[in-house]
């Protein structure tokens, strides 16, 4: 089993003044047609004509540990992708690498044919709940409004229309009654719904959710999956780092199996084969009964 020597580094939420060295994640260049450039030669089925999200050869190193190695994949618009893998397989690292939150050794990310960093206003991210200090003095309303800070811009207050958007997001997640509650007083599921409401207020086209189902109740899980389903029907694209290998896998359009390198991507039957799972989780893994 992989240990996690690098994990304290990613979990360190303290000040990060270090400037990213520009050369390390230069995004110069045009989207290359690198289909079938899959190093692990997985059962990569049908050719996708124009994936809206394209990740090319992403490699990430934390000090001396290789966290991600040459990961390339694409995802079509309107699809929900589940990213699976053992602890330390690089699932969160892949997400942070895509978002440009960590320096990458190599790799380019394109969204809608443009370098990802120019498309940030179209992206919403929900970090792991464990990365957040829930004792922070903020209410549900404060947190949801954070989703409108970028669109408000510097030195200007959050507009009335932004407040309306935030209110609608709270309604959609059934959290209106909790508007003035401290975030620390909420249950894990309620906290996750608040974060999802914040992501909704960003009015993004691409959603990246890191372990949104950890420590949430069944009710919240249903609410979140229903919402994500609605979003894909509106044409939004969604990436979810996921840990449960049970029935919830049926909710995803596509799965991606990771163990520092990409093992497989595709629908459930192509990805969840015994060989792939062995590569991802080691020999003691037993496939849960399909639901």
């Amino acid at each position: 089993m992989l240990s996690l020597p690098w994990f304290p580094l990613t979990a360190n939420r303290a000040s990060n003044t270090h400037s990213q060295r520009p050369g390390e994640r230069s995004l110069i260049g045009l989207p290359t047609k690198s289909q079938g450039h899959d190093p692990m030669g997985s059962e990569r089925a049908h050719d996708r004509p124009q994936p809206i999200l394209r990740v090319n050869n992403m490699t990430v190193r934390y000090r001396n540990v290789l966290a991600l190695e040459q990961v390339s994949f694409g995802l079509d618009a309107g699809k929900m992708l589940g990213i699976l893998g053992a602890n330390g397989a690089g699932k969160s690292t892949l997400m942070k690498g895509i978002l440009g939150l960590i320096p990458t050794v190599s790799g380019q990310v394109f969204y809608d044919g443009q370098p990802f960093q120019q498309q940030r206003h179209r992206v919403a991210y929900v970090p792991q709940r464990s990365q957040i200090d829930w004792a922070y003095p903020a209410t549900v309303w404060d947190v949801v409004l954070m989703g409108r800070i970028r669109s408000a811009g510097w030195l200007s207050p959050i507009s009335a229309s932004s407040r309306r958007i935030a209110m609608e997001a709270l309604e959609r997640l059934g959290m209106v009654d909790y508007r003035d509650r401290s975030i620390g007083e909420l249950s894990g599921g309620q906290q996750q719904r608040v974060f999802l409401a914040r992501a909704m207020t960003q009015q993004a086209d691409l959603f990246l959710l890191d372990e949104p189902f950890v420590g949430v109740d069944q009710k919240t899980q249903t609410i979140i999956f229903d919402l994500l389903r609605e979003l894909t029907q509106e044409g939004k694209t969604i990436l979810v780092v996921h840990h449960d290998l049970g029935a919830s896998l049926n909710q995803f359009d596509e799965l991606l199996l990771l163990n520092r390198h990409l093992i497989a991507q595709g629908d459930r039957t192509t990805v969840m084969t015994p060989e792939n799972l062995h590569q991802a989780y080691g020999s003691f893994f037993q496939l849960p009964q399909a639901a």
């Binding site: 942070k96 978002l99 440009g100 939150l101 991210y125 929900v126 970090p127 200090d133």
Partner: peptide, 12 residues
């Protein structure tokens, strides 16, 4: 100060 990762992800 509340959520530096998300703040960075939005481009702040």
């Amino acid at each position: 100060t509340f959520d530096p990762l998300s703040a960075q992800a939005t481009g702040l």
